[in-house]
């Protein structure tokens, strides 16, 4: 009986625990995704820094063609979107579904605004003749910011989904993805636009 009970307890611990990940708020699988995405973007940004060190003149001249105002505007847009998403999580936790949905909706609209600014920026670069194959800087610029924009699109789909199925767990998990997109942009903006 003692052995059987011990085995049962051990099995329960194994099936219910995420080890160190259990300390994280929300869904552990989302955190695995967040860590993976940060690693991927971190490697891309480190690669950018190495490529820049190999040809600083080209990178500096190319970087001068970026519009820091658009980048700063998009930073403000995503940070503002993030505060509404964080508010939605707090409302979901309080069980106020209508306010949760309204805040997710506002966060969603700011996400759309981010994409509109980004598309405008890309259109401007392309009109000026700076495309994916212009040089190494623009290749990395389009790849990293384009990959990030794809995450924004995916994040918007997740926000729409959790606005419909607005349980506390869903909203927390969906908004965590949105904050990851925000966090990655802060790093991308600093490296590509400010440095």
């Amino acid at each position: 009986m003692g052995d059987g009970e011990g085995a049962c307890n051990e099995a329960a611990e194994i099936s219910s625990g995420w080890g160190p990940l259990s300390a994280l708020p929300g869904d552990a699988m989302m955190w695995i995704l967040i860590i993976s995405e940060l690693a991927v973007f971190g490697a891309a940004l480190a690669g950018y820094a190495v490529a820049r060190a190999l040809d600083p003149g080209l990178f500096s001249a190319s970087q001068a063609h970026l519009d820091p105002f658009s980048g700063a505007l998009n930073t403000a847009i995503l940070l503002t979107s993030g505060v509404f998403a964080a508010g939605a999580v707090r409302q979901a936790r309080a069980g106020v579904i209508r306010a949760t949905r309204r805040l997710i909706g506002i966060a969603f609209l700011f996400g759309l605004a981010f994409l509109a600014v980004k598309v405008g920026e890309y259109a401007g670069h392309l009109a000026d003749g700076y495309g994916l194959e212009t040089n190494t800087f623009f290749t990395l610029y389009y790849l990293v910011t384009g990959f990030h924009a794809a995450h924004v699109v995916f994040g918007l789909m997740i926000l729409a989904l959790v606005a419909v199925f607005a349980s506390e767990e869903n909203v927390t998990t969906g908004c965590a993805f949105w904050h990851m997109v925000d966090l990655i942009w802060v790093l991308v903006f600093a490296v590509f636009y400010l440095s």
């Binding site: 708020p25 964080a86 966090l183 802060v186």
Partner: peptide
């Protein structure tokens, strides 16, 4: 700040 307050890692 994003990690601590938006992603609520101040809990961990």
């Amino acid at each position: 700040l994003i990690l601590a307050d938006y992603l609520e890692l101040s809990r961990a």
